[in-house]
Design a protein around this nucleic acid. Structure first.
Lengths: 196, 196
DNA sequence: GTCTATAAAGGGATAGAC
DNA sequence: GTCTATCCCTTTATAGAC
């Protein structure tokens, strides 16, 4: 039956997401995934022709929803407040243990699955950068700040905000709650650099 | 004989370094390492009690030499030139395909070998940050720039310089040659933020 | 210390029944 | 579509001779 099949398929992808995220691609076994999903291994292979296929389907399924959390790119009156909004959103998205798990896995598998890695990056970080760059450009055109190179400035903003914390999160699994002081200092420094 | 044993041991670690760096911890097999080293697998196990042990010995062996490349922390007349020096050194160290391989591997294994990951981070990035922070503090005391929080500023400097390029290098294997323009822009922005 | 040969376990994938 | 049972290859690790 179609319905039962679909339910099983969803359960499998859910289980796979947990397994891959927690243990990584190679360490996660199809046996374990099947067990978590409450089906037999043969059922897994009835829905996905290989471990590779299942992995790619899982990543593509769980990666996209990030974008809708981002602030808009329209000009606003209070630039500083909006930049703080961006900073807080980025921090919440990036500096969680869960996100670090995903990132660790994508980093680890990037050579094996280069296309998947690229689409992961473009659907996540790149989209966020583009949104921010667009916002900065709008502000520049509104005459609020001076941003000759929006793409570069967007990158710099993220860099100032995060410093080495992304690497820290990846390697040391340190994901402390976002420090408001840090956000404010970064935003102020950014505005100082881009003052008209 | 001691000498032959030592030579074999070195060959094994060299082979292991290549194998782990190129294929990652799990994908690299002890068979392949033994073959590359020109010895039998039993010989590998005569020198290292397990794959774990060999891996940790290999990482510890190949990670330390980074520090000696760094600029000193003593005050200099031309702050800008010295910051450019720091920036170029950091770029050369971090943005190479080889370094990206190591980082990818350390990221991938960080949950499995947390202590090793920590010592890797502390021997590399953390040491570099400390050196830069010390330099900034010396400059602050010499009255050249305003740096109320050297650690924070050192992190910010790296962030401004790299933006998302470290993540790009890890996930997309993009390690383009360092762009001088980027370095200059980052340094100038940093100096603008920290002007007296 | 070094070899050849082999044990032992894990895991990806499939056969065949229902 | 789903199950049980199994194949078969890879890989870590060791036994025993030299």
């Amino acid at each position: 039956m179609q319905k039962r099949g679909q339910a099983a398929k969803n359960a499998i992808v859910d289980a796979a997401a947990d397994a891959f995220r927690e243990e990584g691609y190679r360490a996660a076994s199809m046996d374990a995934i099947a067990q978590k999903a409450g089906v037999s291994k043969a059922t897994v292979y009835a829905h996905f022709e290989s471990k590779d296929t299942l992995f790619q389907a899982t990543v593509r399924r769980f990666v996209t929803p990030i974008l809708k959390l981002l602030p808009g790119a329209d000009p606003v009156e209070d630039v500083r407040a909006e930049l703080i909004h961006f900073a807080e959103t980025f921090s919440e998205i990036l500096l969680t243990p869960e996100k670090a798990d995903w990132d660790r896995m994508m980093v680890a598998t990037s050579k094996q699955f280069p296309k998947l890695a690229r689409s992961y990056f473009e659907a996540g970080p790149q989209k966020a950068l583009n949104r921010l760059a667009k916002f900065l450009k709008a502000q520049e055109e509104a005459g609020n700040i001076s941003v000759p190179d929006p793409e570069f400035s967007a990158e710099m903003f993220c860099g100032m905000l995060f410093g080495t914390r992304i690497l820290r999160n990846l390697i040391l699994s340190e994901s402390p709650p976002t420090d408001p002081t840090r956000v404010h200092r970064s935003v102020d420094a950014f505005l100082k650099v881009h003052a008209k």
